[in-house]
C-alpha cells in the first residue's frame, strides 16, 4: 500500500515535470522567435514568422548592421542614453532617498511626517495624472536631457524608495548610531559609516526596482526629452514603427534582440536579488 502511494507520487511528479517543461518551452518561444527573425531576411519575417532562418531566408548579421543606423537614429546612442539615465537616476534615488528615509525615521517632526505620507500617497497616483504638468515643468527647468532627467526620476520615484527605506531604517537599532554619535561622529559620518552599510539589502531591492523601471520606461522620457536628439531604447523602438519609409522588420527584430540581451544578462547575474526585490516592491506594482 505504502509502496503504491510512493510509486503514485513518483508518477505524479514526473507528469508534472513534463507538463512544466512544456510550458517552459512555450514560455521561451516568443524570445526565440525574436532571435530567429533577427537572422532572417526582412521579406520573410512577415510571411514565414516561425520558420528557421535557413536557406534563402538566412540574413547573417545584415539585420544587425542595418539596425545600427535604422530609423535615422544610431542605436548605440539610444543604448548609451538609456544606460546614462538608468545609472544616474538609480544612483540619485538610492543616495538621496536613503538619506531622507533615515532622517524621517529618526527625526520625529511634523514636516517629516508630511513628507512621508506624501510619498506613500504618491505611490497610488498614476503617471497620467501628472504627465502633462510634469513634462511642462521639466521642460521649463531644463530637465530635458539625459543628464538632468534623473532629477525628474528622483522626484517621481521618491515615493516607493522612501517608503521602503523608512520601513527598514526603523528596524535598525538606534543604539548603534548613538554610540557612533558618542564617538564624535557627525550625522553625515554616522550616516555613511554606520547607516549606509546597514541599508545595503534594501538598497539592492530598491536599486533593482528602479533599474527595471527606468530602463524600460517609455512615456516619461518620451514626453520630457527632446525626441529628435535623445531617444532611449523604448522610445527608439516605438518610433521605428512610426518613422516614414518602410519598416525593416528584420532590422527591428535585431534591435529588439540586442535590447533584450543586457536585460537577460542582468537577470541571470542578479536573479536572486531581482526576485526578492520585485517581491518587496509588490505594493507598488
Amino acid at each position: 500500500m505504502k509502496q503504491q502511494t510512493l510509486h503514485g507520487e513518483k508518477v505524479r511528479k514526473t507528469v508534472m515535470s513534463v507538463v512544466l517543461s512544456v510550458i517552459c518551452i512555450i514560455y521561451v518561444l516568443p524570445v526565440l522567435t525574436v532571435v530567429i527573425n533577427s537572422f532572417k531576411l526582412n521579406t520573410y519575417v512577415k510571411t514565414d514568422t516561425f520558420a528557421l532562418p535557413i536557406g534563402d531566408m538566412w540574413a547573417g548579421f545584415q539585420n544587425f548592421i542595418k539596425g545600427m543606423t535604422f530609423g535615422n537614429y544610431p542605436f548605440y546612442k539610444s543604448a548609451l542614453y538609456t544606460l546614462i539615465i538608468t545609472v544616474l537616476s538609480t544612483a540619485l534615488i538610492l543616495l538621496f532617498c536613503s538619506m531622507a528615509a533615515w532622517y524621517i525615521a529618526r527625526v520625529n517632526s511634523v514636516f517629516c511626517k508630511v513628507v512621508y505620507y506624501l510619498c506613500v500617497f504618491s505611490m497610488v497616483v498614476p503617471f497620467q495624472m501628472v504627465m502633462f504638468t510634469l513634462s511642462k515643468t521639466a521642460d521649463r527647468l531644463q530637465l530635458n536631457t539625459p543628464w538632468t532627467i534623473p532629477v525628474v526620476y528622483l522626484g517621481f520615484g521618491a515615493g516607493l524608495a522612501i517608503f521602503m527605506f523608512v520601513g527598514f531604517a526603523k528596524s535598525i537599532p538606534i543604539e548603534i548610531e548613538e554610540a557612533a554619535s558618542i564617538d564624535g561622529c557627525g550625522p553625515l559620518r554616522t550616516y555613511f559609516k554606520v547607516v549606509f552599510p546597514m541599508l545595503k539589502p534594501t538598497m539592492i531591492s530598491v536599486g533593482i526596482l528602479e533599474i527595471m523601471w527606468v530602463w524600460n520606461d517609455y512615456l516619461l522620457p518620451s514626453l520630457v526629452l527632446d525626441i529628435n536628439e535623445f531617444r532611449t531604447i523604448p522610445i527608439h523602438i516605438q518610433y521605428l514603427k512610426g518613422s516614414y519609409g518602410t519598416v525593416d522588420l528584420g532590422a527591428t527584430m535585431a534591435l529588439i534582440f540586442l535590447s533584450i540581451i543586457p536585460v537577460i544578462i542582468f537577470y541571470l547575474i542578479c536573479q536572486k536579488y531581482i526576485i526578492k526585490g520585485v517581491a518587496a516592491g509588490a505594493v507598488k506594482g
Binding site: N42, T43, V45, G245, T246, V247, D248
Partner: peptide, 8 residues
C-alpha cells in the same frame, strides 16, 4: 500591420 517593403 504592414511589414512589406514597398520600396524594395
Amino acid at each position: 500591420t504592414g511589414g512589406h517593403d514597398a520600396e524594395n
